[in-house]
Simulated scan of single mutants.
Amino acid sequence: MKNVMIVDDAAFMRMTIKRILENDNYKVIAEAENGYKAIELFKELRPDIISLDITMPEMDGIETLRRIKEIDAKAKVIMITAMGQDKLVREAVKLGATSFLVKPFNESQLIQTFKQVASRI
């Protein structure tokens, strides 16, 4: 069972991702509503996989990804992005994002993406 941290400023999105993942035998060990909290929790818990929203207040997903990769270059991070954020996606790839998921996504897309990333651990 892989440990997951979900980072999204929208509580509804965190709850949705958590429900889907827990139904597929992932363990959600942490949730964060912003990048600052995500970095603190990452240092403490070292989840196997992180789902990270690109667009968040206070600290966006790109800066959060940058800081997580400084802590652990091997961290597995799935970026969650909205349509039309191609420039941000390219930036995240340069920084070492493991995979991407474009909103709106369905349950099977989420599970497939997590399984692909989990297979690399």
Rank of each mutant, 00 (worst) to 15 (best):
K43Y: 05
E70G: 06
K103E: 06
E70W: 03
T98S: 15
A10L: 13
A11D: 12
K115I: 02
N25L: 00
T55Y: 00
M59W: 09
L65E: 08
I54W: 06
R120T: 14
I78F: 02
F105Q: 12
G35S: 13
A118P: 02
P104I: 08
Q109L: 11
D53H: 12
V4T: 08
Q116I: 14
M13T: 10
D86C: 00
D72V: 01
I29T: 09
Y36L: 13
G61N: 09
I54V: 14
A10Q: 15
K115A: 12
T16K: 12
A97I: 01
M56F: 04
R67P: 01
N23F: 00
K2Q: 09
K94G: 13
A32M: 10
I71A: 03
T55K: 15
D48H: 05
E107F: 00
E58F: 08
M1C: 01
K69S: 06
I54M: 14
I71R: 03
K103Q: 07
I39S: 08
N3F: 07
K74A: 12
I71C: 03
N34P: 03
I78K: 09
R67H: 07
I62Q: 10
M13E: 07
A75P: 03
A82K: 06
N3Y: 11
F100L: 02
L65A: 12
R67D: 05
Q85E: 11
T55G: 10
G35E: 10
M5D: 04
I111A: 03
V7Y: 10
I20M: 07
S99A: 15
A118H: 04
L110V: 07
F12R: 13
I111C: 03
N106E: 13
R66G: 06
I17S: 07
P57E: 01
I121D: 00
K69R: 09
D86W: 00
F100T: 02
M56V: 03
R14W: 07
M1R: 01
S99M: 05
I29G: 08
T113N: 11
M1K: 01
L95C: 13
Q85G: 02
G61R: 14
I54L: 15
D72G: 00
V117L: 04
E91I: 13
I71F: 02
A30M: 04
G35H: 14
E33L: 08
T98F: 04
A32D: 07
D8Q: 10
S51D: 10
S51A: 15
M15N: 13
K87D: 11
S99P: 00
M1W: 00
E91H: 14
M59Y: 11
I80N: 10
N3L: 08
Q109V: 04
F114G: 01
E44P: 02
A82E: 06
V4E: 06
I78A: 08
K103T: 08
I17M: 14
D86E: 10
K94T: 10
L101H: 08
T81E: 03
G96M: 12
A30F: 04
V77T: 06
M13S: 10
R46I: 06
N3S: 15
I29V: 15
M1N: 02
L88N: 15
M59E: 09
P104R: 14
I68V: 12
R19M: 14
K74R: 14
K27Y: 05
T113A: 15
S99I: 00
G35V: 12
I111K: 06
L88P: 00
M56H: 06
K2S: 09
R90V: 06
E91F: 05
